[in-house]
Nucleic acid binder design. Structure first.
Lengths: 145, 145
DNA sequence: ACTATTCCTATTGTATTAGTATGAATATAT
DNA sequence: ATATATTCATACTAATACAATAGGAATAGT
């Protein structure tokens, strides 16, 4: 019941891009440095995000990445579901894996759980997170200065 | 983002006990056979459920297991949280694992997600599942006869 | 041409989860 | 008492999924 580090790193990457939205492309190298993550590993992640249409990429010298849409138009659910399977059990999507679906009441439990998860993550946008982050930052600075 | 087979098997075990609640103890052997699960593996699971106070165990010949409370008084959340960690990331519970919690807005995302998960699972009881199961069974029988 | 970036594929490492083996403790029945 | 059937406890092994690295090809700006 853990969200994968892939999804967590991916969300941090997206937030890094969201935080500088409108200011041109960012290099993966710089994001990796700032977020203290492996650039190699991040490169896999950002490729999947690109394939899903969440970021645009530019190759070559002075290339880089940008968010494909404005931060308010990208949800956490968009990000997480491209990096991992959000359905908590397989039998909900593919009844074939289990012969007793017709009689299985656990199935309904997992269906509801999956729904709760996607509903929750789909209603949080990157813009929401930016707002929280800036709020926190303010408090933090005020407190320590 | 998958619920472990341990939790899934555990729920099936609990449902087997719920289904014959009030009719005395059940042997693990029989549950394992009916549910087509490894008895050895189930024995680990049932021990954890016992330690959590969800089932009572009786040793010796003619021993067995019974639900410790009535089916309506046990939730899916009770079962799942004894068999695995329901909090989707560690940094929510133990801020120490991540130095940037003060500034991290992802934290709030995972906190909300964790809340959605436990709320969902805590409000489904074994009695609810029994009702669904019997409903399904009826439909199934009606359809195929 | 040179350099800095993204893109692609294969491989390795590691941790978690799943499952097995063996035998001790305990209670019942004969 | 003894035999038998169960739970209890611990240690070990196997399988799988996840995380991370490696090396180089393609691309674009200078």
């Amino acid at each position: 019941m853990k969200v994968s580090t892939k999804a967590r790193y991916g969300l941090r990457l997206m937030m890094a891009l969201a935080n500088r939205y409108g200011q041109g492309t960012a290099f993966l190298k710089d994001i990796a440095r700032d977020q203290e993550l492996s650039e190699k590993y991040l490169s896999h992640i950002v490729m999947e995000l690109r394939a899903a249409g969440l970021v645009n990429a530019f190759r070559g010298s002075n290339g880089g990445y940008v968010l494909a849409r404005e931060p308010y138009a990208i949800t956490v659910g968009d990000v997480v579901k491209t990096l991992e399977d959000m359905m908590p059990v397989n039998c909900v999507r593919e009844p074939a894996v289990c012969g007793r679906v017709e009689l299985c009441s656990a199935n309904e439990v997992w269906r509801r759980l999956g729904e709760a998860i996607s509903t929750t993550l789909n209603q949080i946008t990157l813009a929401d997170m930016l707002a929280w982050s800036r709020q926190k930052n303010e408090n933090y600075v005020m407190y320590y200065l």
